[in-house]
Amino acid sequence: MTEYKLVVVGAGGVGKSALTIQLIQNHFVDEYDPTIEDSYRKQVVIDGETCLLDILDTAGQEEYSAMRDQYMRTGEGFLCVFAINNTKSFEDIHHYREQIKRVKDSEDVPMVLVGNKCDLPSRTVDTKQAQDLARSYGIPFIETSAKTRQGVDDAFYTLVREIRKHKEKMSKDGKKKKKKSKTKCVIM
């Protein structure tokens, strides 16, 4: 069974824990209790493949930012979460993405942009803004509501699919490099 290491990042209060708990335990946590770091595991079937999701729910508070490099190193894919009623959390996505790329030393890291709290009427981040940002990053965008469960499975499952595509691409690139290195030079 394939294991996928997913990391949920975003500013404090955007609903990272609520999304994760909704996926794992099928219930909505409405009281806000700032996370330092929590880890969850769940076995699911995605596109006919049974897999184990190892999900790291991270601290959004700035005082825990020193811990970010460590979990970013171990993560295979990242859910970059903002709240649709919090423009600052949307603007912060850029910083999370840049930090992930720096730590992973790669421009090509599996990510999904997630606009959470889409059940709320007080939207300050337009869907088109988020779609445009995701398009500019070359990553999928999904709106979710941890409260109603809308888009929750889709967000995590899409990230797994992005990781699969990335692994497939990397193995193809690896095979191309191996083929090239088999060419021999004969000096007579």
Rank of each mutant, 00 (worst) to 15 (best):
L23K: 14
V9T: 05
I55C: 14
L19P: 00
A59Q: 06
L23D: 06
S39E: 08
V45S: 12
L53H: 09
T2W: 05
Q25Y: 03
E62H: 10
D38R: 01
G48Q: 10
T20L: 09
Q61W: 04
Q43I: 08
A11R: 05
D57R: 00
Y4A: 12
E49W: 04
V8C: 06
Y32Q: 04
K16A: 15
T2S: 12
K42L: 06
Q22L: 02
E62Y: 05
G13Y: 03
I36E: 00
V9R: 03
D47H: 05
A59E: 05
S39D: 11
I24K: 11
T35N: 14
E62C: 08
V45Y: 06
A59F: 06
D47F: 02
K16N: 15
A59C: 15
T50S: 10
Q22E: 11
L53D: 00
V44K: 07
K42E: 05
V45W: 06
T20E: 03
P34N: 12
E3K: 10
E31R: 09
G10I: 00
T50V: 11
Q25V: 09
G48H: 08
D47N: 06
S39W: 12
Q61R: 02
Q22K: 13
T50N: 11
P34Y: 12
Y40R: 02
E31S: 13
R41Y: 01
D54A: 02
V7W: 07
P34T: 14
G10D: 00
P34G: 14
E49Y: 05
C51Q: 07
I36S: 01
V44D: 10
G13N: 08
I21S: 12
A18W: 00
G13W: 04
Q43Y: 09
T58H: 09
V9F: 13
D54W: 01
D47I: 01
D54G: 03
C51S: 09
A59M: 09
T20N: 10
K5A: 02
A18L: 02
N26W: 05
I21N: 14
V45P: 11
D54K: 04
D47W: 02
I24Y: 02
E3F: 04
Q43M: 09
C51E: 07
L56A: 15
E31A: 12
T35C: 15
G48L: 03
L53E: 04
G60A: 14
T58L: 07
T58M: 07
Y40D: 00
V14S: 13
I55K: 01
E3Y: 06
V44A: 11
I24N: 09
D30E: 09
T20R: 01
T35Y: 15
V44H: 09
L56Q: 15
K5W: 01
E63I: 02
I24R: 06
L52C: 12
V8W: 01
G12S: 05
D38S: 01
H27C: 13
D30L: 09
I21A: 13
I24H: 03
K16S: 15
N26D: 11
L23I: 10
Y40S: 04
I21Y: 15
I36W: 02
I21C: 13
E63K: 04
A59I: 10
Y4D: 05
V7M: 09
A18P: 14
S17I: 01
I24L: 13
H27L: 14
F28L: 05
D54M: 01
Y32M: 11
T58E: 06
G60F: 08
T20H: 03
S39L: 04
S39G: 09
V14P: 02
L52F: 06
I46Y: 07
V44W: 05
K42V: 05
E49F: 04
P34I: 14
F28H: 07
Q22P: 04
K16M: 15
E31P: 09
Q22W: 11
I21G: 13
D57P: 01
E37P: 00
N26K: 12
L19Y: 14
T35P: 06
A59N: 12
G13K: 09
L23E: 15
P34S: 15
A59T: 15
T58R: 04
E62P: 11
Q25A: 09
V8P: 00
Y64R: 10
V29I: 12
G15S: 00
E3W: 04
T20C: 06
K16G: 15
S39R: 04
Y64A: 13
E63C: 04
L52G: 08
T58N: 08
V29P: 06
Y32E: 02
L23Y: 10
I46A: 10
S39Y: 07
F28M: 09
D47V: 03
D30G: 09
T20P: 07
